[in-house]
């Protein structure tokens, strides 16, 4: 069961996951973590521990767990979420501009092409508005996906390893761009990259064990995105790696 309610501050979200099983395997007994308003929260853990499942539960996409599951939340989050996945999920039959305005098209709403073009300009793809996704590089496609997420203009952003398929340089650039463009959003980032988590997050949770539990929250100092050269970032990355190694140990 997933319960979303308001606790620490009125605008923050406290997420509680209770008794979640999949195919006779208990994923979580009880987990609770806070998504602070306007901040980035990262969720880390070894592969298969259930990070993406949590994200999908929040997004209301995990229908395989819906039987007997109730979702309660003190503030309305339905219709306030935008989802950015590991793969760009650009529709190959639509051009870049139509992909950015996809949400409005799906809801049968009027879409502001000017705003979409403005967003494309801010991600550096204004000149590619009429291009088809197949003609773009992986990094460009993920930037279109970021523009599409921003076009939804939702307060909560769920990101499932959105930079994992990129090369190192493109990854760092896109992380900086995302941090800049999503600075006023409440973001939940699922990642397995400690450096990414430490650079971008205000709070970091690490999942470990089975059923999964959360370690104490890590709160990096300073405002994201933090520079890679920063010794504190490298130290934080090492600490996260140590926690992950400990989590993996039997």
């Amino acid at each position: 069961m997933v319960i979303l309610n308001s606790k620490s501050k009125e605008e923050d979200l406290v997420l509680t996951v209770r008794n979640l099983s999949y195919k006779d395997r208990v994923l979580f007994d009880e987990l609770e973590f806070v998504l602070e308003k306007g901040k980035w929260t990262s969720l880390m853990g070894i592969s298969g521990i259930g990070k993406t499942t949590i994200l999908r539960l929040i997004a209301g996409l995990a229908s395989e767990f819906s039987s007997g599951t109730s979702i309660v939340h003190s503030r309305k989050i339905s219709g306030e979420l935008a989802y950015m996945s590991q793969v760009d999920l650009l529709f190959p039959w639509l051009n870049v501009l139509d992909n950015v305005t996809l949400g409005a098209r799906l809801r049968g709403e009027e879409c502001s092409k000017d705003r979409a073009l403005e967003l494309l300009r801010s991600v550096g793809l204004y000149a590619n508005a009429a291009d088809m996704p197949s003609s773009l590089s992986v990094g460009m496609r993920q930037r279109v996906a970021l523009a599409r997420t921003l076009m939804e203009d939702r307060p909560f952003i769920l990101m499932d390893e959105p930079f994992s398929s990129l090369d190192s340089l493109t990854k760092v650039r896109l992380q900086d761009l995302a941090a800049e463009m999503l600075q006023d959003k409440t973001v939940l980032l699922v990642t397995h990259d400690p450096l990414e988590a430490y650079r971008l997050s205000d709070s970091i949770y690490v999942l470990s064990g089975q059923p999964a539990c959360l370690d104490s929250t890590i709160k990096p100092a300073g405002a994201p995105p933090r520079m890679i050269e920063n010794s504190e970032v490298l130290q934080g990355q090492a600490e996260l790696l140590a926690r992950l190694s400990k989590a993996e140990a039997p």
Partner: peptide
């Protein structure tokens, strides 16, 4: 993934 994205955008079944 396409269906998840569309659902997260509150698309109806017919859409």
């Amino acid at each position: 993934g396409f269906l998840d994205l569309a659902n997260s955008m509150n698309a109806s079944r017919s859409a």
